[in-house]
Design a protein around this nucleic acid. Structure first.
Lengths: 339, 339
DNA sequence: TCTTGCGATGGCAACGTTTTCATCCTAGCG
DNA sequence: CGCTAGGATGAAAACGTTGCCATCGCAAGA
């Protein structure tokens, strides 16, 4: 049970001693917070490299009013392409800004999100990006003090807060409109969670557009609550094998799209498919596909600008919600089933 | 430019005052580090909830010998399924252990990896998981003191360190052997970076197995250095259109597999494909597919056990390298091109 | 009754920084 | 030559927490 003690990391005091100056001077050189004579500064810098010294973020964070140059990102779950893209873009943006991004996972549990917000705050991140989980029934979210928060992609329930997300309602509305224009009258809807954002916005759009055209969605063709691809596959198989199969299938996430395509490939069915998210294997689809193209770079740059303005106090106005527009991508199958 | 100052978060002193005890007692209650009378403890706990107090991780980390109950994960890049799986599993494991996982991205740059290791150490994480980037020519990696490090998935170059990875050499060797046994004599190899781990292990296996069978890989059928799917697609297209097309294509990552399948789908070619990584859209493949199945749960639990033992000093022996075995998955196409 | 021992609690130093304040030195000016 | 202004540097007080040590009170044993 020998304690694992490597040689303790050097402190600012060690650097000071080696350079023959005071701790204050070292601090000034490292932060550029005050003028230091060139020669002295050079000596300090040499000592720093020689000792391979880095300032202790913990000790630094203790002083009030000091930026940690660290941002936090709380993501609800780590499934799909969508999540990697978000992290990659945010990390790039943070790096460009000179900050470090720390990521953690809430597993879609509100209790965990709350805990992690506190945890990150206690590590004194300058600000937080959060993909909110559901479950805040007591409106606690609004009472979370500490670092400023920008909610990303999902709209948190029952709180006025800074949010940046895509206009998922409009995106889905356009998908359904397009299918309608193509003449499809028997469309199926395969969805995930529809009580919570952004599933709720997509589901609402689906219903609204059909009703606007005087059509009521056939309950046989609506199947929601899917959390994995497998159940979506089964649902679609059932529909395709019925006496009145759909001519088009609308779905929401990339995960479910794979499930849907699986069923279609198994049956060799000839239906049109539309999805609210992209997937990178889209070119393998056996049927025509329309997907919503979301510009994550725009999402991230909006979120970053907003958070940065909150952090440095440039923006102290009321919370804002920003809905970003989306594009659309139509893909014909490379190898049609019916060829 | 109004400073964004919310009401300062409460300190342990505030809790002590409210509960009518000393700071020491509050600390004892919160850490369970010593006996406190039930009634007193209860009063403290009430004060804590009333003030919504959380210990400052920064201040706490300042004391020597105190665990932060935080682990760091440095990942080289955020592409592909592989990466999400790793994070998800590690996060689960950390949570089960009672620790928080902080993730950051090295973007495959050694300088950034080094900086982030220092950064995380300065935040006093108890230990680090690192998917190493390449570029450590000076052997600096071994001189990184601070928290214990377990390298994951990739073997860092030129350093003796704790590593947990899959046996990618064996996995690739088995793939090639299997194709050989099936009678394939013109196999193509599409690879990414082959100078660095794990690409180098895979490339070596490919070469070794062919040579062992007395066959020399046809240079026309070997194309490496692909970083995106597009170039792989072009390479495979060229091969398929030549007068002596391959009968099988071997590739390494999920990203490249998609590129390969794209070419095959475009040409309507009838070749066998093998890949060293899984993809979730495998069922859409137009041709038979053999993929290596890697058990990430095993990878993570091995890494976690190792790190935990290093942290609490249970294991202070020399560094170990662990190569985990892999499985194999054969998938017939749902809808064959030639049907 | 006096002592001893122990359980519960409080006081205080230390952890590694930043920053204010004071001090020192030098150059410039009368 | 004397005085001052100002630039460079050092000393020391926080920041919020933990752990050692001291103190206090009370019960048990002599």
């Amino acid at each position: 049970m020998s304690r694992n003690v490597g040689p303790k990391p050097p402190t600012i005091k060690d650097v000071a001693t080696l350079a023959g100056v005071s701790m204050s001077t070292v601090s000034r050189v490292l932060n550029g917070s005050a003028a230091v004579q060139d020669e002295t500064a050079e000596r300090v810098r040499r000592a720093v490299t020689q000792l391979d010294f880095v300032l202790s973020a913990s000790a630094r964070a203790l002083r009030p009013g000091v930026r940690s140059m660290t941002w936090g990102l709380l993501v609800d779950a780590v499934e799909s392409h969508y999540f990697s893209t978000l992290i990659a873009e945010l990390d790039r943006a943070a790096q460009a800004h000179g900050s470090t991004l720390l990521v953690s996972v809430t597993q879609k549990e509100w209790a965990r999100e709350k805990h992690l917000i506190k945890e990150m705050s206690s590590r004194r991140v300058d600000g937080l990006f959060v993909v909110p989980a559901n479950g805040d029934v007591l409106g606690e979210r609004s009472r979370l003090a500490g670092a400023p928060i920008v909610y990303v992609d999902r709209i948190p329930s029952g709180v006025v807060a800074d949010v940046v997300t895509f206009d998922y309602y409009r995106a889905m509305a356009e998908l359904v409109e397009e299918l309608w224009d193509q003449g499809h009258r028997r469309m199926a809807f395969i969805g995930g969670e529809v009580d919570t954002d952004p599933g709720s916005r997509r589901y609402a759009a689906w219903n609204d557009i059909l009703r606007r055209h005087g059509s009521t969605p056939d309950p046989e063709l609506v199947s929601v609550g899917h959390l994995v691809a497998g159940t979506a596959t089964e649902a679609v198989l059932g529909m395709l094998r019925s006496d009145q199969p759909p001519t088009a299938v609308v779905t929401t996430t990339g995960l479910l799209l794979l499930g849907v395509l699986h069923a279609i490939a198994l049956e060799g069915a000839d239906v049109e498919v539309a999805c609210s998210e992209e997937i990178d294997a889209a070119f393998l689809s056996p049927v025509p596909l329309t997907v919503v193209a979301a510009d994550f770079t725009a999402l991230v740059s909006n979120a970053v600008d907003l958070l940065a303005a909150r952090i440095d106090g440039t923006n102290s106005g009321p919370p804002t919600t920003k809905l970003l527009p989306t594009g659309r991508l139509r893909l014909e199958p490379l190898r049609s089933l019916t060829s």
